[in-house]
Design a binder for these strands. Structure first.
Lengths: 249, 249
DNA sequence: CGTACGTTTGATCTTTCTCAATAATGGTGG
DNA sequence: CCACCATTATTGAGAAAGATCAAACGTACG
């Protein structure tokens, strides 16, 4: 009988997308002592103004980073999918300037800061991979600024659908040309800087145009290439090698 | 007679804002071999899709990061002030996903990648400081997403003025409660996701309200506290200790 | 002194928001 | 399994913020 799948397998896979890790790197990473916590949707992983003591990796489910404005509206500033490290960063800074919340129910692996630091010291490639991952995250932030700042609502919505698709594909979480959108239209709006009403209209427009099809929250992409085009989506900023849906028709 | 001021002094000061550097760290950083290049406004420092070979530090003048959308409009995704390192990052990633351009004429210190890598290896505190700087940059990106995504034009404009003020103050580049805005209203619009026409109106509105006053591009802040409030500006995300204008009235 | 660039202003148009109502969905207790 | 409730999705109508178009005005610089 085989050992249970290591909880950090998805992290290792994710990091391997952007930096080389050899067998020893992976083995030692997999050997990190972790505690797994299951969190309900909307639970906070990290709260603004808090000083996080451990490091987290999202193993299952989805999470998001969020900031509130003075008038109480929220903006989602990042989405996380399984395999994403969450704030291995705060190692260097003092206090969190935003919050991280679960988008859906999911599992978080908690790693002691010291253990991670030790691993990074012994295996520089691991540190390098974490760094590359962080740079990719920053690149995604920049693209979000562009998306929200300069693209109209339809393009903006299409772009986010494409980004999620590309990232899920790279993480091998795509189910034949589609995925289940892990959030309400309200939350989509919070990510896009739009109201839920308008998000609804944009999704409908994409659907009428044949670019996507929907069943509940499951989205399929009959017109993937056109969606990419409408969404002004060029995935260079994701810094992945794999080409999403390159097999598609 | 005293030695000429070291070109990297502003970098050292900047990094010291967010991480501890001892005398040796500073001395060795100052001893890095650099080539200084003076660049005209609008010159590219790094071009998208390029693979930068050296590391840069902005010594004088201003720079910005920029991405273009499919329909040719541009979004400025970051501003840089003297002392800011520019893409010590790309060490880890392959190809630039955006461009960096001079906003004004200015001086750039060019550092060989190998020299920097060596320094970081010998002096971990320097690596730590660069890392902290990078995290702060990422935090600023997140705040920009919020600004562009969820704040109205007036608040958004005020926020950017506050951010620049706070950063310049921390870099000791503030001239008694004011500074010269290093860009046209068109470029301000590119940073804010607004048209230059609307930026103009917002500036006027801030001026009429007595929150700012203007002479050419020099902006003064007679109503700094109110501007902060209108701009929904809380500088925690800058991760600076110093409180801007805490002396003001 | 003229040209190019940036700023300012007005008028109009479009996109997106707001408000409001209805419909669908998911989960819960009986 | 069904009725009920809370949440989410959908649709319409009107309002508002910001974009667009166009022109005039300033300023800097050769």
């Amino acid at each position: 009988m085989s050992a249970p799948p290591n909880p950090l397998q998805s992290l290792i896979r994710n990091l391997s997308l952007r930096a080389p890790l050899d067998a020893d790197d992976c083995r030692l990473m997999a050997a990190l002592p972790v505690t797994v916590r299951t969190l309900e949707a909307s639970t906070y992983v990290i709260r603004e103004a808090e000083r996080p003591g451990s490091c987290f990796v999202l193993m299952a489910g989805f999470a998001f980073r969020q900031k509130l404005t003075g008038d109480g509206t929220q903006q989602i500033v990042a989405l996380h999918i399984p395999g994403d490290p969450i704030d291995l960063h705060y190692l260097a800074l003092d206090v969190a300037d935003h919050s991280v919340q679960m988008l859906t129910r999911g599992d978080i692996a908690v790693i002691a800061r010291a253990d991670l630091q030790h691993l990074v010291k012994t295996r520089p490639a691991v540190g390098h991979a974490l760094f590359a991952n962080m740079l990719a995250e920053t690149a995604i932030s920049r693209e979000w600024i562009v998306n929200v700042g300069r693209r109209n609502a339809l393009t903006r919505t299409a772009h986010l659908l494409c980004e999620l698709g590309a990232r899920l594909e790279a993480a091998d979480l795509i189910d034949e040309y589609g995925y289940v959108l892990p959030m309400t239209q309200e939350r989509l709006g919070d990510a896009l800087g739009l109201t839920s009403v308008h998000v609804n209209r944009m999704l409908k427009e994409l659907e009428i145009g044949g670019l996507i099809s929907r069943t509940k929250r499951k989205i399929n992409f009959p017109g993937w290439e056109q969606l990419r085009s409408i969404g002004d989506f060029n995935q260079r900023y994701l810094h992945l090698q794999a080409d999403l849906f390159s097999h598609s028709g």
